[in-house]
Amino acid sequence: MPKIKLSDSTINIIKGICAEFQNKESELINVLHKTQVKLGYLPAEVQEVIARELHSSVARVYGVVTFYSFFTMIPKGEFPISICMGTACYVRGAEQVLSEFKRQLKVEVGESTSDGKFSLNCLRCVGACGLAPVVTIGEKVYGRVAPTQVKEIIAEYRQGNIQNDVKTD
């Protein structure tokens, strides 16, 4: 794992978040949530700071981070693509859509493209079953996606027609 050196300001952000939760070990998940919102992901060095601030062990923090699928140690792509794999989407062909995304982007689920533009993930039911199969890119939701549309959808982002509308805070 490549080492990152955290800047003092990043460390202070993390410390601030921990302090907001009274540096309580039992608030670990809240702290991780908030930190991930701020920093985008939770690399090892961030987890070390959190462990120190919450008087916990790094192993425990890592154990929690790796337990919950919401937490990620890899920075997401500029355009995070999520394929809904809820049952409703599955029976309406989500699997074929997913394999087309994998094929087009040449990444596996949980990975990012080498240029950092796209990351591919699965999620379970966004609650838009009427639009199944559903794909979300950032905050944008695509409904009734067919495998044949995948190429154009990606192309739109590649060409920069769509700006990143992911909220950073």
Binding site: S56, S57, V58, A59, R60, Y62, G63, T66, F67
Partner: peptide, 9 residues
């Protein structure tokens, strides 16, 4: 000591 923890799931 806190070196070992269950990880992943």
């Amino acid at each position: 000591v806190g070196v070992l923890s269950a990880i992943n799931r």
